[in-house]
Structures are given as structure tokens and as C-alpha cells.
Write a protein that binds this DNA or RNA. Structure first.
Lengths: 249, 249
DNA sequence: GACCTCAATATGTATATACATAATGAACAA
DNA sequence: TTGTTCATTATGTATATACATATTGAGGTC
């Protein structure tokens, strides 16, 4: 009877594509534990029979699952549920304006200092420069409402970003200015806790040594160092939050 | 002449699949900035002509690029390079044993305390429990060499993980014990800096108030709260590091 | 001009088919 | 026993084809 087929896809529900449905069916079996790690999932031709579709459609679903790291595919042997890769997980880090506005507070940017100089040894270290180069050194503040939310200490390599020489950064923060102008290919983050030093403490209007969250980001574009930023979030007021589902690399 | 065809694929090079090559060709044009955000990339049938392949092969490449967030596809209009989505990025967090061993130091786990209790209001808050439930509360230390590397403060919901009642956690850390036993579907991380409180300070053998990195992780399996952990990494000795290429969500 | 209709168009999804490739295991030879 | 050969098998990749679907733009009507 046609009734069962109708029941498969209730009227109000918008129908996802078939390979999508196969994918989520399998994904659910894995996440629920019904198919434990190591379990061999049905062969492509078996699934194509149960779903009454072609092997290509099943292949599309399984390939995506393999890419997401949920299953492992072995020729001649079949596809297997992968063991979760330790407690590894993924965290998203947003830009500051978004962060502040997500808190429902008005955002404001303020430049504290701007210097151009021949890169010191420390500058080269931070940027990952091998040869001397001229750099722009910026310090600035990001406000959430009336209170300073974050202190930014940034270097920009003029060799890679010559336009930065003619930008005052009085109105626009260097982050948004760089984004869109310089396509970055690789970046590296470092997150740690530290007591704030005297200089940063005074601009943030807190006591030196107060615990703070330090996020450093180093960015390259096509192997050329672009910028190095050090964000200092004062006190324990700031938290990086991430929600995610297991995507075992 | 066949010579040009040979030149296309040098002898020593292993040939990636065609759709892979199309994907990386386009990806490179985008990352290099040759195709700026908003640029309309060639239509599927155009690319299939230039690469002398079927539309399906091009479609596979473009679909993956769209999924990765690098391009946006619009029916009837074509495919366009997407504007990078702010400075969002991704960070991987590994489990502690792996972290310690990556430093080349011997790893050791030590249980400090284990209690079973009817969940307090704070316990329910941490686990995300709506109704009262019995919980296991564990505190333990992770050593890197001789020094305490990390303090762990964990709650496990006995309702979701009844087996935990019969596990002493004297030999095995609760993290690895839970992994593999309970497939988790969702997790949430919170990362912040804080001064350590007196209790944790004494077990870590440092002064109270020392800046420390606190990583909290809350885990659910099929909407059921599984566990809540609070890792405290003493001082500024510990850094979370992440390297990544831009996958603009 | 505002509105409607409709053909054109680019992507979305799915099929049937084909051959390549890696891995397994059984049959067979030294 | 050890090693080799070889057919089998499941996945990997690619093609040609088909129809669905959303969107655009042109043309006609009120």
C-alpha cells in the first residue's frame, strides 16, 4: 500500500535529499552507539538495495562521512565506524566587535599608539620574519560599553602590507582593515593565562598581575608574514565559548 | 603532440584525482586573491570545457568548496567567491595525556578524591541537569614529569553513566574511561583565565591567586548530561596552540 | 509603470554505466 | 612451509544522461 510510503515522508516536512538522509541515518546510528567503533557498516551495494537507490547516491553519503572522520573506508574490506580521536575538539574564535555586540553592549575602538620602525629582533620573532623589515606597531583598546574589554598589541609587516603605511588606524581597527584586504592562508593561535604587565594594566585600568586571558594570532598569506596580534582580556570576565559536535579528525 | 600532455603530469608526481585538482586550482586562485570576494567563478559547463571533463566532476569540486564556505552557489546566477567571515577560526584541543607526551615528558595520573552524592544545586547547574540525580565528584591531578601539570575537577551523572558507580578511578583517569564508553553527541567548551582558589592552589603546590588557564567542558550524549570537567592549568606555563587554514563558516 | 507569464539558465540531485585500484584469500608451485 | 599467481571484491573516480528547481530577464497586458 502507498500508506507506508506516505508515512515515510510526512506532508509538512520538507524532504532533504536522499544522500543526506542516508548520511544522517548512519550518523545517528554511530552517535547513538548502536554501531560501535569498529563496526562494519553495510556495503554500498547493500545500502543501495535497502534505500532502493543507485550506488553513487550511497557513495556520496559515505564519502562525506569518511571526510568528516566518522567512518574509515577500506577497499575490498568495507567501511568501518572510527574510534573517537581522544577528546580533541574544535573551538571557534570570533572577532572582537562581534563578541562585544553578542553581549548586547555598544562597541567602540580606540587607537592608543601607532609607530613605524625598523623591525627589532623581538618584532621579527613575533612576525616570523627571517630578514629585517619595516613594521607598524599598534596598540589599541576595544571597549564594551564604558569599560575597556580588550587590549590589542599588533605588528604589521610593511613588506607584505605596504598600504598600512598610509593608514592611520584612528577610525578603523587594524583587524577589520586587514580582513578582506589581505587573504590569509595560514594562521596560528596561542591561548594562555598570564598576569598583566604594568603597561597593559594601566591602559586597561586594572592592577598589574591581574589574571588575564591572552590570545595571540600569527597570520601568513602565501608564506609571507602578515601580522601578529596579542589580545589581552582583563580579569576573568571574558570566556571563549565553543559548542560543537564530534568531528574526529 | 603528446609532449604537452606528458608535461601536464610529471613522471615522479602522483596524480591526484581530477576533481581534487579542480578544487585546489580554484582554491588557490581565491586564497591568492586573484579571484576576490564577490568574483563570479566560471560556470560549471565552462570549467568542464576547460578541464575537458564532465559537469559532474566539476560539480563535485564546487560542491565541496561551497561546503567549506569558500564559495557561494546561486541557481541561475552562478558561483561566487565568499567574503571571509570575520576573523573566526578553529582550535583543536587534545586530551591531557597526549599534551603531556607531546612535550616529551612522562605522564602520570593521580586520584585526589572521589565522592558519590545526591547532586547539589551547583552540581545540577554544572551538568545541566533539570531534575535531581546522583553524581560522582572526582578531583585528580595530571603530572608532567615530577610537576603537577593540570588539576581536574569532574562531575559524572550516574543517571547517564551508571557504570561509574563501580569504577574507582584510581588507575585510570575519568576522561579516557568515559571516551569510548559513552559516545558523546554535543559538547561545550569554556576557556578563561582566573586566579586559582586556595584548594586547587594547595594541590597544585602554588600560591593562591596565581593566574591560571581554566578549560571547562560539558558533554551530552543524546541530550543526556554525561559529565562536566574543569581543568586548571597552573601559571602561564600552558598554552593552547592551533594552526589552521581558513574555513570560513 | 505595475503586474503577470513564460522561456531560458545554472545549479541540485539522481541514475546507469564503466573502468581503475587496492586488498584479500584461495589455489598452486617451489 | 613459504612464496607466487590470480580471480574476486569493495571502493574510487569519471562519464553521459535526465529531470527537478530556483531565479532571472524579456515580453506582453492591464
Amino acid at each position: 500500500m502507498a500508506l507506508t510510503e506516505i508515512a515515510d515522508r510526512p506532508a509538512g516536512e520538507d524532504a532533504p535529499s536522499l544522500h543526506q538522509r542516508i548520511l544522517s541515518d548512519i550518523s545517528e546510528k554511530i552517535v547513538s552507539g548502536e554501531w560501535a567503533p569498529g563496526h562494519r557498516i553495510p556495503f554500498e551495494y547493500e545500502l543501495s538495495a535497502t534505500y532502493n537507490c543507485s550506488r553513487m547516491t550511497v557513495n556520496k553519503a559515505l564519502s562525506q562521512l569518511a571526510k568528516a572522520g566518522m567512518i574509515e573506508r577500506r577497499r575490498r574490506s568495507g567501511s568501518f565506524v572510527r574510534r573517537p580521536k581522544s577528546q580533541a575538539a574544535i573551538l571557534e574564535i570570533h572577532d572582537i566587535k562581534t563578541e562585544v555586540q553578542a553581549l548586547g553592549l555598544p562597541y567602540r575602538y580606540q587607537l592608543v599608539s601607532r609607530r613605524m620602525r625598523r623591525g627589532t629582533a623581538d618584532d621579527r620573532e613575533r612576525l616570523g620574519l627571517t630578514e629585517p623589515s619595516t613594521v607598524i606597531a599598534l596598540t589599541s583598546l576595544h571597549f564594551a560599553g564604558h569599560r575597556p574589554f580588550c587590549h590589542e598589541d599588533r605588528l604589521i609587516s610593511l613588506r607584505t602590507v605596504p598600504d598600512a603605511e598610509h593608514e592611520a588606524f584612528a577610525e578603523i581597527a587594524p583587524g577589520p582593515w586587514l580582513v578582506g584586504r589581505i587573504p590569509w592562508s595560514v594562521a596560528e593561535h596561542r591561548i594562555r593565562a598570564a598576569g598583566v604587565d604594568a603597561g597593559v594594566a594601566s591602559t586597561l585600568d586594572i592592577d598589574a598581575g591581574t589574571p588575564s586571558l591572552v590570545v595571540e594570532r600569527q597570520t601568513w598569506s602565501a608564506d609571507q608574514p602578515v601580522t601578529h596580534v596579542r589580545f589581552t582580556y582583563a580579569g576573568d570576565g571574558h570566556t571563549l565559548v565553543a559548542r560543537f559536535t564530534p568531528a574526529q579528525g
